[in-house]
């Protein structure tokens, strides 16, 4: 449970930590869009340098980022295999019966891998340096225009930030229940898939009951502190773009210009 890196926030004082969460969300979003465009070696090189540079700015050990890639390893391997085997073209490098490995297939697979890895790294930079509730806050601010379409943006953001706040608590609880049941002889890691799935049931029931009780308690606690609805409230944390955010946007623009120059000129 402890080694899930995606979505984990590590407090710090780096420039990236201090950026407005909206800047980081927009930056990550733009970067992902550009990566869907990238299809030459040089574009991946430019993107890799940009990611590398940002990673250095976060002042976090590289190991954190490598750990962040681990959970997607199998997904990555699976996609690469698919790309290698099912991209046609010539020249053919290897031949096993009806399966052909072609040079375009290998190149395609490598591109997909780079794309995946770079996107995950960029998203890890965002989640590693931004508290989850700030992300929720930023999403609320960015999605504000949807309010005119009657989308309950404020409610959704509040729900998201409360949900995120309870994640560590529920993780702890899962671990406790697992330990309690292991001490009664339950095993979660042996037997076939059916047996393992069955072992999950006595884990889920107390977990759900506990979560429900928490939800009821929390609703009471919110109500007695004057919560009426998500709309009629002021805000303690007001987001404000600062100098470093403009610098970040300038770097993003510069990166995009270089990216497209490399894409179309080289």
């Amino acid at each position: 449970m402890g080694n899930i890196m995606i979505g984990r926030f590590v407090p710090g004082k780096s420039v990236v930590h201090q950026l407005d969460p909206r800047t980081k969300i927009i930056g990550t979003f733009v970067f992902i869009l550009l990566m869907l465009w990238a299809n030459t070696w040089s574009t991946y090189l430019v993107a890799a340098i940009f990611v590398w540079f940002t990673i250095l700015l976060t002042q976090q050990p590289l190991k954190m980022y490598i750990d962040g890639l681990k959970p997607i390893f199998w997904l990555l391997a699976f996609t690469i295999v698919l790309q290698i085997f099912f991209t046609g073209g010539t020249p053919v490098l290897l031949h096993f019966g009806f399966i052909k490995v072609t040079l375009p297939g290998v190149i395609n697979a490598l591109f997909v891998m780079f794309r995946f890895v770079l996107i995950i790294l960029m998203s890890t930079i965002m989640t590693l340096t931004t508290p989850p509730t700030s992300i929720a806050n930023a999403l609320e601010s960015l999605l504000k225009p949807l309010k005119s379409l009657k989308v309950p943006v404020a409610e959704m953001a509040l729900m998201l930030s409360i949900a995120l706040r309870f994640v560590p608590l529920l993780m702890d609880e899962t671990q406790k229940i697992m330990n309690a049941q292991k001490s009664r002889g339950m095993s979660f890691s042996t037997g076939g898939p059916v047996k393992r799935a069955k072992a999950i049931v006595p884990l889920l029931i107390p977990l759900f009951v506990g979560a429900l009780q928490r939800a009821l308690d929390l609703a009471n606690a919110m109500e007695v502190r004057g919560f009426k609805d998500a709309e009629h409230r002021t805000k303690y944390r007001i987001l404000k773009y600062k100098k470093q955010d403009y610098q970040a946007f300038a770097s993003l623009l510069l990166f995009s210009i270089i990216f497209f120059s490399v894409l179309y000129l080289i």
Binding site: P132, Q213, R214
Partner: peptide, 9 residues
């Protein structure tokens, strides 16, 4: 329950 009434981050 101290955990079930802590709303803020």
């Amino acid at each position: 329950n101290p955990d079930n009434q802590f709303v803020g981050a």
